Simulated scan of single mutants.
Amino acid sequence: MDFKKSIRFLTVKIVGQYINLLHLVHPKKALQLSYALFTNPRTGKISHNKLPEILKDTIKETFHHNEHHFQTYTWTGNDTKILLVHGWESNSARWEKTLPYLQKSGSTIIAIDAPAHGQSSGEEFNVPRYAEFINKAVKKYNPSIIIGHSIGGSACIYHQYLHPETSIEKMVILGAPSDLKTLLDNYIQMLSLNRKMFHLLEKRYLENFNFKLEDFSGGTFAKHIKIDGIIAHDKSDTVVAFQEGQKIANGWKKSHFITTNDLGHSMHDDKLYQEIYQFLFEAKE
């Protein structure tokens, strides 16, 4: 395992040095490569003829949005609907361990594949496009509950900020990053890219999405959220720092922040799921 980590570390650093050298002679190509590495998932795609077992016995729908399409999977139940939003380099099958807890409520459960993940189209993932997919699914299914993991949680928060008047009444966010600038900083440090590359990437985001990196913050968006929610984050999360969850919780006044230990980034845990179930369903009874 240590040998594999060493090889991966060296590979990452070599790629970073290549981008730094490429920037000296072809800055546009260096930008294209660094942006692609940051936004193009390496894993998470699935084909319709090789569906994970958990997704086979579902109602499948494909939605078209501009030049893209995205996939949803529905486990039918009662009139209470829950929308599940997965994270980076994953797909709707990641909810396999979560489903039994939610299905105890009898709810109808819908999972969505992110841009460039699962059976959804594209090569590039970004939160604004994911939020557009979420909004289309919300309009179609009218869920009262939305649950997001990792950057899927960030997309849920951004969606709620953009579209506060929807059917959604409660939201659960698991291990989500807050600040895009922090993600990009970590990426720059991981590859040891020079600061010029950071400024080029920052400019690319401004041109593509019309926002500055420092303005794209879950903690800032959360200040506008009026619905009740849970934010859960693990202290030993090595993928998304614990402080990112705290930033979101500090902004979202109607949220309850749950700290977990030794769950890592996946956040699969009986006790946590029981707390979530209680928040979502038992308060009604």
Score class of each variant (00 low, 15 high):
Lys253Asp: 04
Ile54Lys: 06
Ile188Tyr: 11
Phe221Ala: 08
Gly148Val: 07
Ser217Arg: 13
Asp234Glu: 12
Pro128Gln: 12
Ile46Leu: 01
Phe3Ser: 10
Ile110Met: 01
Glu124Met: 01
Trp252Met: 07
Ile258Thr: 05
Tyr18Pro: 00
Glu61Thr: 12
Phe242Trp: 09
Thr58Pro: 00
Lys254Gly: 00
Lys104Asp: 12
Phe38Tyr: 12
Lys60Trp: 07
Arg94Ser: 13
Lys45Arg: 15
Gln160Asn: 09
Asp185Glu: 13
Lys45Pro: 04
Asp262Phe: 14
Phe216Ala: 05
Cys156Ile: 09
Val127Gln: 06
Asn250Phe: 02
Lys140Ile: 03
Ile168Gly: 04
Thr166Trp: 01
His149Trp: 08
His64Tyr: 12
Thr108Leu: 04
Ala116Asp: 02
Gln278Asp: 11
His256Lys: 15
Leu272Asp: 07
Asn208Trp: 07
Arg94Asp: 13
Thr166Phe: 02
Met190Asn: 12
Lys253Asn: 08
Asn78Val: 05
Tyr277Met: 09
Gly16Tyr: 04
Leu184Val: 12
Tyr35Ser: 10
Lys226Gly: 02
Gly229Thr: 08
Ser150Thr: 10
Gln278Ile: 02
His64Asn: 11
Ile46Glu: 01
Phe198His: 11
Gly106Glu: 11
Gly175Cys: 00
Glu96Lys: 14
Asn142Tyr: 09
Ser236Ile: 01
His23Ala: 12
Phe216His: 05
Leu206Ile: 02
Ser6Ala: 15
Tyr187Val: 03
Glu132Trp: 02
Ala137Lys: 00
His199Ala: 04
Lys29Asp: 00
Asn250Lys: 14
Ile173Leu: 02
His23Leu: 09
Asp270Val: 12
Lys254Ile: 03
Met197Pro: 04
Gly152Ile: 06
